[in-house]
Write a protein that binds this DNA or RNA. Sequence first.
DNA 1: TAAGTTTATAGACTGCGGTCTATTATCTGG
DNA 2: CCAGATAATAGACCGCAGTCTATAAACTTA
Lengths: 192, 192
Amino acid sequence: MSEEKHSGGRPRDADAAASIKAATLKLVRERGYNKVSIAAIASAAGVARQTLYNRWNTKADLVLEAVFEETGHYADAPLHNPNKSCKLQLEAFLIQVFTHLDESGSPIRSLIAAAQEDPAFREALRERFVKPREVLVIDLLQRAQDQGELSRTRDVKMLSNFIHGAFWYALLNGEPVDARLARAIANEIFVA
Amino acid sequence: MSEEKHSGGRPRDADAAASIKAATLKLVRERGYNKVSIAAIASAAGVARQTLYNRWNTKADLVLEAVFEETGHYADAPLHNPNKSCKLQLEAFLIQVFTHLDESGSPIRSLIAAAQEDPAFREALRERFVKPREVLVIDLLQRAQDQGELSRTRDVKMLSNFIHGAFWYALLNGEPVDARLARAIANEIFVA
DNA sequence: TAAGTTTATAGACTGCGGTCTATTATCTGG
DNA sequence: CCAGATAATAGACCGCAGTCTATAAACTTA
């Protein structure tokens, strides 16, 4: 099912994708998204430029996959820990997201930027980055309501937008996205 | 004070800036930010390309000025209206911002994108677009606290981040930024 | 082996943002 | 009127993303 037919024709180089993604990740983390050219990535991976375009439509698609494959557990959060309050779980989740962002050298900012000019890529980013995190947060907030930690009068979908919005807003405005922000967000969401 | 010395040398064409900005606004609204080239703007304005670069550093700088000069009253909101509740004032403010966004064909999204790759421009955008709106919202929320419409336990700075964040998040994710969103934000901020 | 198919590669090409240069035009001060 | 300064213009130039073409390589099926 995961294997394509491939009835005839030269097969794709099995290692190319991996070495391209590795080179992409390395270079983007070292130099930043727009300081790295496709040509440089191809050269570092030891393939021709066209080989990249055979596998990804755009630079943004490639970087998205490279960044989110290695750290690709976009749903392995330490959520649903019954020993902690939902507020602390939210805080821990945000700290994890922010840490990941930081160690990726924040190509996310560039990916969000790229998404503004490319609807197809925006959808891809939404599927791989945005939605999984929305689901986690909404689940957590609903659990908080079930356990009485959060008032039933609150609109969890809107609160999720507040949470992610506050984090995007800080990120895109160049403000620190760190544990302090995580605590401030969690505090204000679970305000008494 | 607003007049420069200009002791010698050919003076700048007094009309050029205006016609460039007019052409920019027209073309960007018609075709969208990245469908309009600097060359096209220069041609439409009847000047050489370099003349644009004599006045603005980048395309983003030019578009920012063009968009925010005409609708440049970034602080003329119908705020501080003692006849309305703060909640309704916030809602009205957001509707106004969203309407402006809509009729500008949302080059704002492209400007936010451009800001991610250019720290100098990010600062310019922050000064002309971000900060003035933050000030308005924070003032409004503080007034709400003074009048008892909003609990003193709330962190107005964080609430402002929630408000603007929710709006940016919707905008950058391609979701509708309209009166419905404005009401939902205001409702959740002033939740009982 | 031969035909057909797909990939890999090198390299040309387009369009864009932005820079740089040389030339010409227009101002000020002496 | 002349010298110096700044602006406008046309056009070359660079780097980059993305497209396209021609050719060589590697596979499958008959």
